[in-house]
């Protein structure tokens, strides 16, 4: 066996090990119920903003505190606390990906991704995730009908 083959084996083994450990560290997409069932575990919560409940964000008091109620398709809801500014398109987004942990009766969120709706179903299906720092493609904010009013 050539030396280079031994090196090859070692490096490949390390690469495989790294990938396996990465896969083991991954988290999961959860509903509110499943997230609550594993408190303290980092999950991706798929939910949306419950507009009937107050959204608490006042930059004059604390620019790094946002609190709101999220609800998901099963109808469950949970209070979410997020220590950063209110994300763009927060109120109009039809889906929120909340990354964080359920701790002490509330969801401690580390990161929020907003998903934007659009006025046409077909377009909505096309429009992928949008986020403040992205390269969104189809923002179908304006429609032909809007344009015609001008």
């Amino acid at each position: 066996m050539k030396r280079i083959h031994i090196v090859l084996l070692v490096v490949v083994a390390v690469a495989i090990g790294v990938l396996i450990s990465f896969v083991n560290a991954t988290s999961t997409y959860d509903t509110i119920e499943t997230a609550m069932s594993k408190p303290g575990k980092y999950v991706h919560l798929m939910a949306k903003l419950d507009k009937s409940q107050p959204v608490d964000y006042d930059p004059l008091k604390d620019a790094n505190y946002l609190s709101f109620t999220a609800t998901d398709s099963t109808g469950k809801s949970v209070r979410v606390v997020y220590h950063d500014r209110k994300p763009d398109n927060f109120e109009i987004s039809d889906k929120l990906v909340l990354k964080g942990k359920y701790v002490d009766g509330k969801f401690e969120c580390k990161e929020i991704q907003t998903k934007c709706p659009s006025k046409y179903k077909e377009e909505a299906a096309k429009t992928g995730g949008t986020h403040p720092g992205n390269v969104p493609v189809g923002n179908s904010g304006t429609t032909a009908a809007d344009t015609s009013k001008k």
Partner: peptide, 16 residues
């Protein structure tokens, strides 16, 4: 293709 879905903040369109 949009397969990245939630995983990317870029998320170009998926065309079906």
């Amino acid at each position: 293709t949009g397969i990245l879905g939630e995983a990317s903040v870029h998320a170009f369109t998926g065309e079906g």
